[in-house]
Simulated scan of single mutants.
Amino acid sequence: MASTSEFSRTLSLLRKERGVSQRTAAGDLGISQALLSHYENGVREPGLSFVVKACDYYNVSADFILGRTLSREGSMLNSEEVLNAAEPGNILQGSVLATLQSKLLSGAVGVLFGLLGKLGDKAAINAAADYLGGGVYQLYRHLYRCAGANEDYFALDSGDCAMDVSDADRKLAEVRYAHALRDRAEKKEPFPDLSPAALAAAYPGRCQSMTQVLSTADARMNGLTER
């Protein structure tokens, strides 16, 4: 887990704040006291099911317990929603934090494209795919480069890539996306109901992923603009 020390510290503080012993908390969470001690001391990394149980037990968001935000509030995914989206057999691929973030983003993207699919606007759908695909490309290429792999694998020259070509590509995709939606609005064509109740009904489970992603990003960017 990328923030194992933060998770361990938060887990221990939450238990002490609740005023329960390690033995009591372990029993309530369905694990041994020794295992909880390992989690609280950063000796071992828990599975996703334990993370969501701990969120429910201490009534905090996953972002808070993983050390990604100081806010305790937020949509809290339950174990079924998280593990249903996991790899076959609910096997974790990498750290808990990486796996949870993957599932949150996967769920949010699923909701976004579900809504775009209801519009039936090919231009908006393709532009959204280009934008998100460009982001994945850029992040993967950074990883690829730092791992020392041969960048001849890519058609885009490494020098051009360093000149923010992918950023320009994403910005143009965002422009095409905005234009497609604006054209639709100007023609008075219908949009899907985006109220929380409607989204929860249309996308049970995945809707919470979207809420969590939006809330985290909104708080992060708002922090950049606060004076």
Results as ranks from 00 to 15, higher is better:
A2Y: 14
S5K: 14
R15P: 04
K16F: 07
R23T: 13
R23F: 13
L29K: 08
I31R: 03
S32Q: 09
Q33I: 01
Y39I: 01
G42V: 01
P46W: 04
L48D: 12
L48F: 08
F50A: 01
A54K: 01
C55T: 10
A62H: 12
S71R: 03
S75L: 10
M76R: 14
M76P: 09
M76D: 10
M76T: 15
E81Q: 06
V82M: 01
A85W: 03
N90I: 01
I91L: 11
S95G: 12
T99W: 10
S106G: 15
G107T: 02
A108M: 01
F113S: 08
G114T: 04
L119I: 00
D130R: 07
L132A: 09
Y137V: 00
L143N: 13
C146T: 15
A147Y: 06
A149Y: 15
E151Q: 12
A155S: 14
A155D: 15
S158P: 15
S166C: 07
D169A: 09
L172G: 12
R176N: 12
R182M: 13
K188A: 12
K188W: 10
P190W: 06
A201Y: 09
A201C: 06
A202S: 15
P204S: 00
R206L: 15
C207N: 15
Q208V: 08
A217D: 14
D218K: 07
M221P: 07
E226D: 11
